[in-house]
């Protein structure tokens, strides 16, 4: 078993007025390389927070996050940003695309930010695999929900990251589109040997994962 993400004793509390919400409560977690891991749990159980911290979008109150043998919490903001755009791909539930850029431009965005030259063939391959090859010049406003999410997925893949973190990417889609998108997602990730960590509500989706982790009140229970 090869670890790609290891979380040690992570703690994150929120203060809303007088209440203290324990979003992440002394959590330990290990994600295996190359596998599709689903994180399930009720709303408010701290899944998103965990994912954000895993991806370096948020800083915990205490604890360690090791990705690929590196403690990302030691990195300064700019270095963290660089790390993110090279090693981690993100897919959110919505507001993923920039409306003024077309599909192609949205997809190559992470490369552009990293200053890497775009390899047209590679990107076309991804687009083809994900079924958007004919839409490369389309504007986001003309795409359906499923197409938009697939664009977002393509973008997450374009930078050839090691890990892809997805936060309920199919939450806004109908069940059929959901299936379609998940299928593509899973294919791509396994073809490229990447690791996928996804938060989902849906049992059906969770089925497609290699491993399922249940988070309850900020703590982890593993179920496979």
């Amino acid at each position: 078993m090869h670890k790609i993400v290891e979380i040690k004793d992570l703690v994150k509390y929120y203060q809303t007025g007088e209440n203290v919400v324990k979003a992440v409560d002394h959590t330990n977690l290990v994600i295996e390389r190359g596998k599709f891991t689903a994180i399930v749990g009720r709303s408010g159980s701290g899944k998103s927070t965990l994912l954000h911290i895993m991806g370096g979008l948020d800083r915990p109150d205490s604890g360690e996050v090791w990705i690929n043998g590196k403690n990302i919490l030691e990195l300064k903001d700019n270095a963290l940003a660089k790390f993110r755009r090279r090693k981690i791909g993100f897919v959110f539930q919505d507001f993923n695309l920039i409306p003024s850029l077309n599909v192609w431009e949205n997809v190559v965005l992470p490369l552009g930010l990293d200053g890497r030259k775009v390899n047209e063939q590679e990107i076309m391959q991804i687009l083809e695999k994900i079924g958007l090859a004919d839409k490369r010049d389309a504007m986001p406003s003309t795409l359906s929900g499923g197409q938009k999410q697939r664009t977002a997925i393509a973008r997450a893949l374009a930078g050839a990251p090691s890990i892809i973190l997805a936060d309920e990417p199919t939450g806004n889609l109908d069940s059929q589109t959901e299936l379609e998108v998940m299928n593509f997602f899973k294919r791509c990730v396994s073809d490229m040997g990447q690791t996928l960590v996804m938060i989902t509500h849906d049992e059906t989706i969770a089925q497609m994962a290699d491993e399922v982790i249940l988070i309850e009140d900020g703590k982890v229970e593993v179920r496979s």
Binding site: A81, K82, R86, I98, L113
Partner: peptide, 8 residues
């Protein structure tokens, strides 16, 4: 989102 995908 841009920051999430790595804009410094």
């Amino acid at each position: 989102m841009l920051q999430a995908i790595g804009m410094s």
